[in-house]
């Protein structure tokens, strides 16, 4: 029963990782950018929600809705100020630029909010504490269900966007061949920018869940980035539903690892990541060769 419970908790945890990974996957899928500041953008989202909660006293979920337009603007600003320019300079530059951005965001957050640890758990209402006892050893937390349902809704909505709307077709067309997309009248700059804005909004959702589930501080970003990145790679780079499954696989690996020893949790996730890397890409040698 403990194993079953661990798997269930792993699914909930994995859904959280999938939400974090979603934006990373969009940006990689559309622009071939690996945004190393993605985790920090999520944490920045959590801080924006925190500020709104502190100022107005609304619940964290309402505060997130208020923060949404801010995140959209931030997404466009991020694209036009940093990503678009660095994209023009080849594939390595966005990596360096977002790495720098990550450091800048962390330090700005330190300046503005001090290194203190914060949480949004207290302002999220009863959802953080309620749970259902299914059987003796199996309990389902309301927050876990909320995160899982949200993840499925987010990925489902993205699927609908990509396969049924003009913006979705434009994103897929631009992702495949930006030059040809321009030739059929698609403004590839605008498509890239909306992909970034979408990724930033979903990152903020990840930040909201991070803040409600546990605690965050100005340097929480990189850890979140690693889990998100692992979820994307386990699920097959840039594949949408793969990212959801990858996140869940990572979550299950971590909770199962924790069954062996609490300190083994994160390591088990990394081991799964490495195993997938070796299996998919034929070992470290191939990975190194293609990276060159």
């Amino acid at each position: 029963m403990t194993i079953l419970n661990a798997i269930l908790q792993g699914i909930f945890l994995g859904a959280f990782y999938a939400v974090l990974a979603c934006g990373l996957s969009i940006m990689f899928g559309v622009m071939r950018i690996i945004n190393l500041a993605h985790g920090d953008v999520a944490v920045l989202g959590a801080y924006i929600v925190l500020v709104i909660v502190d100022r107005t006293g609304v619940s964290a979920f309402v505060a997130f809705l208020i923060a949404l337009p801010v995140m959209v603007v931030l997404g466009y600003a991020l694209h036009f100020s940093v990503l678009e320019r660095s994209l023009r300079a080849g594939i390595l530059t966005p990596l360096l630029a977002t790495f720098g951005l990550s450091i800048v965001i962390q330090n700005l957050l330190q300046l503005a909010f001090s290194p203190d640890v914060h949480s949004l758990g207290g302002s999220a209402g009863a959802v953080t504490t309620s749970s259902w006892q299914v059987t003796g050893g199996l309990s389902v937390s309301a927050l876990g269900v909320l995160v899982l349902v949200t993840a499925v809704v987010v990925f489902g909505a993205l699927q609908l966007l990509l396969s049924n709307t003009r913006l979705g077709w434009m994103m897929r067309a631009t992702a495949e061949d930006a030059d040809a997309a321009e030739l059929v009248g698609i403004n590839s700059r605008a498509v890239y920018a909306s992909a970034t804005a979408l990724a930033v909004v979903i990152a903020a959702l990840g930040g909201l869940f991070l803040g409600i589930r546990s605690v965050f501080d100005p340097v929480s970003g990189p850890t979140q980035l690693i889990f998100a990145f692992e979820a994307v790679v386990i699920g097959g780079m840039g594949s949408l539903w793969g990212t959801l499954l990858g996140g869940i696989a990572l979550g299950i690996a971590q909770t199962l690892g924790a069954q062996i020893h609490p300190q083994f949790a994160v390591l088990a996730g990394h081991l799964l990541f490495l195993a997938v890397l070796v299996a998919r890409f034929g070992g470290a040698r191939v990975v190194l060769r293609t990276a060159r």
Partner: peptide
């Protein structure tokens, strides 16, 4: 230079 991952309909409608 078609968009290979899009269907025929999608290739036309996106343009």
């Amino acid at each position: 230079r078609l968009f290979g991952g899009l269907t025929v309909m999608e290739n036309l409608r996106v343009a």
